[in-house]
Design a protein around this nucleic acid. Sequence first.
RNA 1: GGACGGGUGGGUGAGUGGCUAAAACCAGCAGACUGUAAAUCUGCCGCUCCUUGCGGGCUACGGAGGUUCGAAUCCUCCCCCGUCCA
Length: 375
Amino acid sequence: MAFYFEVLKTDPSGARLGRLTTPHGVIDTPAFMPVGTAATVKGMTQEMLEGLGVQVLLCNTYHLYLRPGHEAIRRLGGLHRFMSWPHAILTDSGGYQVFSLADLRKVTDEGVRFRSHLDGSEHFLTPEKAVEVQLALGSDIQMVLDECIEYPASHEHARHAAARTRDWARRSRDYLAAHGGASQQMQFGIVQGGAYADLRRQSADQMIELDFPGYAVGGLAVGEPHTLTCEMTAEVTARLPAERPRYLMGVGKPEDLADYVRHGIDMMDCVLPTRNARNGCLFTSQGRVLIKNACYAEDPGPVDESCRCLVCRRYSRAYLRHLFMANEILAAVLNTHHNLYFYLDIMRKIRDAILFGDLAGFSSELQARFEAGSP
RNA sequence: GGACGGGUGGGUGAGUGGCUAAAACCAGCAGACUGUAAAUCUGCCGCUCCUUGCGGGCUACGGAGGUUCGAAUCCUCCCCCGUCCA
């Protein structure tokens, strides 16, 4: 079996230490997946990512379908070879673009009509098409097309989106099976339901009924309070089968990662470490450092005293600020490197904490540090 | 020496009588960023006062005068800068 998920240890909190085996390597869970939307984690080379210990990347169906085109990538030997990433890849379905490109699309039961953000051309993304594109890309894990909605949203709207997501999930599953893809790629169903517990439970049950090899919780972290994100997540994970991986999509802030894990989450992804890095926001053990702040102009110290990453070991805040202010490309590279290291380091510590039975302690320590504010 | 052109807030540079503390961009200061339309976006950006308000006062478009109810904008002289001619 090319895919294999095992839970090695379960914490009393519900946190799980696990291992997801894919044709392109093992993923130690709980795992954080850097976002490489357009087949690149902006600013990072694949070698750098490997050096950081990244085991799985997230890439995007919608973006790669538009450019360079999934067929081109197929002809070039698939996404792994195309982007020279021999490790695991999870592809998102384009469901998030239903949310983020709300002005450029129209959703119907059949699918989503997008007007390309690149050239205005029209494209119709159906659940089947999303599966087809992801098959062409050859990712290890593919996501079903879902309808991610905004927060706040009415119960009615959330119910409709969840129902549509369920229908799309069924179509996605069937399409993959009909094309013999189920043995090549793991397909995750996505639970929706907005901020409504009853809808979340219902959506979870429906996804379980469809019997996916893995499940995702989508439509969260779109503006709602963190406690609500946790509540919704808990509603879902309480019902999901223990032996299958759970992926909370699009989270989160560093200080919140352990909370999600404690609610039974195995996988997460987020643009925060990479995007914020490019915008000059560095995550540290003492809180956020906005490196462009004037107070760092002549600060010879490292970004984070207690960080062991290459950037913190070698460069000063003053230098990083200079690079940022001067609009140097290296600023994005170094900042991204640090932030990803920071995230992956937290995940490492989380896994250790589960192993040693002290996740609660680690979690509150994380929260406390961030509440203390910026250094 | 002469002829043109030009001197605007930290910079570039709009603005040719009131709607102008003065466009826009840059620089600077601060903030945001959660399955990436993001190396993006937002706010502030003369000084000052307070009852922080589409609030008051002061200063400001090379300098000094003047015209006008009102001038960065018109007039006079002066000082600088550029180009060209001697």
